[in-house]
Design a protein around this nucleic acid. Structure first.
Lengths: 176, 176
DNA sequence: AAGCTGGCTAGTGGAAACCATAGCCAGGAC
DNA sequence: GTCCTGGCTATGGTTTCCACTAGCCAGCTT
């Protein structure tokens, strides 16, 4: 899909293809309808994202999470509560011998499904060129991780091969 | 590194495997060293992310971008300026016939590489179950897009098959 | 030269995010 | 009992985000 460059503007300008009713960008509003915005409502803050990172790194207990993220306990408590309420984490009782019952935070299925987002962000962060930092690798072969954009049928998809359309549930009549 | 499940917790608790010097999570700090945090510094705000979405949808001109994101012009101006400064967007002159020279915002290579992050977020947002919303599909076959976590050698990688280690540039001596 | 318009910029204000410090509370240890 | 500790909660303050309103300016049209 790499086309020859035009005189002034090469085709690196290519973006998502809008077809049908989406072709006229003024005819529809993504605001409040966009899954991106739904996602950002839940994990759009720095504290939420780095708490999730810490959980992926194996953190479970409150003070551990607060310490490793560098967040204050107040912020950590508030955000953890929100992440539990939103269904990314689950609060689960545990008891160390000779200690009282406490709660730890573990991933739910929804939380586990956020992993590709984390990997994508880390991969992109690597591109920023700042040296240092921890990277994620495949246990089996030691190669660094990244994400690949694919369609449900398994084709790799580049940006210009992407189109927008209504979600599968949509009846097509209720876009604002 | 997949350990047998305890009585209460099945192995769905599995997270990233920490080995070597990383095994002791208290021995190292991700704070300020994490590529995730570097990434979030640039696109950690809602306005930055939805502006990028709008650019991917083909938006280029200032008022178009402000209108379609629902952001105020003040916020859009500030964020666009920052995105240009950070190298995700490029400000490029254009001239409509009979109009003065203006500037439009187009993706840089760095900005284009953010696409998988957007796809991952949209895919995850779909999981939230709220109905409606635009989805991205493959032009070729019409199937919805998602991301797949893979290592550089092409193996698909699940969460428990992931390990953390120092970035390739690291000499291993300079973790805080 | 006067007006209009697209593309910003500036000022104000509220809400949310985040930090710092201090306090509380359940319950095992003693 | 009393103490101690891990896990929060409360209070107060700064900073950032974002909305709203208003204004500015280059330059094309008239």
């Amino acid at each position: 899909m790499t086309q020859p460059a035009g005189p002034a503007g090469p085709d690196t300008d290519a973006v998502i293809t809008l077809t049908g009713r989406f072709a006229d960008r003024d005819a529809w509003q993504a605001e409040g309808w966009c899954r991106l915005e739904h996602a950002l409502e839940l994990i759009g803050t720095r504290s939420a994202m780095i708490l999730m990172r810490e959980i992926y790194y194996g953190g479970r207990r409150f003070d551990e999470l607060a310490r490793h993220t560098g967040l204050t306990e107040a912020v950590a408590a508030k955000r953890l509560k929100q992440l539990v309420a939103d269904g990314l984490l689950q609060r689960r009782p545990y008891q160390d011998p000779g200690k009282r019952t406490r709660y730890e935070y573990v991933l739910t299925e929804l939380g586990r499904e956020l992993f590709p987002v984390l990997v994508a962000l880390i991969q992109w962060g690597e591109r920023l060129g700042r040296e240092g930092g921890v990277e994620l690798v495949h246990v089996g072969c030691g190669s660094p991780l990244g994400v690949v954009v694919k369609c449900a049928k398994g084709h790799e998809v580049a940006l210009p091969d992407t189109a927008a359309r209504l979600g599968t549930n949509g009846n097509g009549t209720d876009l604002p």
